[in-house]
Write a protein that binds this DNA or RNA. Structure first.
Lengths: 193, 193
DNA sequence: ATTTTCAGATGACGTTGTCACCTTTCCGAG
DNA sequence: CTCGGAAAGGTGACAACGTCATCTGAAAAT
């Protein structure tokens, strides 16, 4: 008694899960439509009933990841028990966690696909808005844009260094969390002056 | 009177130039060994006399870009007429300039290839060392590691936002240069305290 | 002068993304 | 209740790609 619509939606989700799984375990090169189909229990042509092409499937995965981050930030913002500095730090560290646990997914989130270069940037907007609100609680609405862009960009890059193994160089002797703490401290201090 | 060695070296460079050109104009997807060979005046199999595979060719391009940055930073560091803050800003803005002028090359520089994930991270080390020295001039050797990692990561991420078009959102109303100025100012201030 | 070496050309193979066509199954109108 | 359209999925085919084995010709070494 599964309706056709339910079955189709389930297949679509199975394709997304299969692709995300392959991405995490074997990297982007392991994500082939044939492998995705096989893991989802269908054949190579089936994904075209749910996604225009391979790129659309990847964009959907990246967008979903951005949506989860947006929800996480929204939940943080709504938490009244946490002081703004804590919210900010938690929101930033969430990105680091994704980068560490799912580096290939992290890369995908920041890629811009050849066909629709702005697709993932659009998906990131909701997440950025939530983040902007959290920053505003700390530094005030006037400076939120300035420090918001700086913090998001910085953490994105710091996580990128971690993902590509550059931060592992003993030359730095800093964890991403260390750097985030320094960054938040500097921003909090600068906004008070 | 071109010797065979000279001819081989010229072909190798022609392949690198052709690939870099295709990368800049058409993105990574436009870089096919057949197209690279055609533009360099050879056929599709010829690149295998100079590079183990396609990935090695791309790594060579990314490494060369990192080398150019290292040289640029070294030249900056040797310039006695510039105060440390100026050197630091110029070194950081150099990354932004590459990102803007050659976004696909910029992406390649920060990618980690499936075969040798640390290859480009190694190529970036010399550049990082030069940068570390410049930071040291400003904040002292004790804090150089801390702020060096923070600055490199931050600027990498900020440029990434610019490259992927996220900073273009009027929501931020900040140029990458604005953010770098804020960042440098904050670091200079923090290191004085 | 002869042998070795190596850049380059060519043919072939497996894999991939994609499309056209066919089959099957479900939903809704009569 | 029937039947016709719609849509999911399967199958065959094709072009493009990375890669390798093999061949050729010319330069370097002996």
């Amino acid at each position: 008694m599964v309706s056709r619509l339910e079955s189709a939606a389930a297949t679509r989700q199975a394709l997304l899960d299969a692709a995300a799984d392959l991405l995490n375990t074997g990297g982007l090169e392991a994500v082939t439509l044939r492998a995705v189909g096989a893991r989802a229990g269908v054949t190579r042509g089936a994904p075209y009933r749910h996604f225009a092409d391979k790129e659309s499937l990847l964009i959907a995965i990246g967008s979903a990841a951005w949506d989860r981050i947006a929800e996480h930030s929204a939940a943080l913002r709504a938490d009244g028990t946490l002081p703004p500095v804590r919210k900010l730090r938690a929101a930033l560290v969430a990105l680091i966690d994704i980068g560490r646990a799912q580096p290939h997914l992290y890369r995908l989130m920041f890629s811009n696909p050849p066909g629709d270069p702005a697709a993932l940037a659009r998906a990131a907007r909701r997440s950025h808005d939530e983040f902007l609100a959290i920053v505003g609680e700390l530094v005030g609405a006037a400076d939120a844009r300035r420090y918001g862009a700086l913090l998001i960009g910085s953490v994105g890059g710091i996580t990128g260094m971690e993902v590509s193994g550059q931060l592992a160089d003993p030359k730095w002797s800093q964890t991403p969390e260390d750097l985030v703490d320094t960054l938040v401290e500097m921003v909090a201090h600068a906004s008070r002056a």
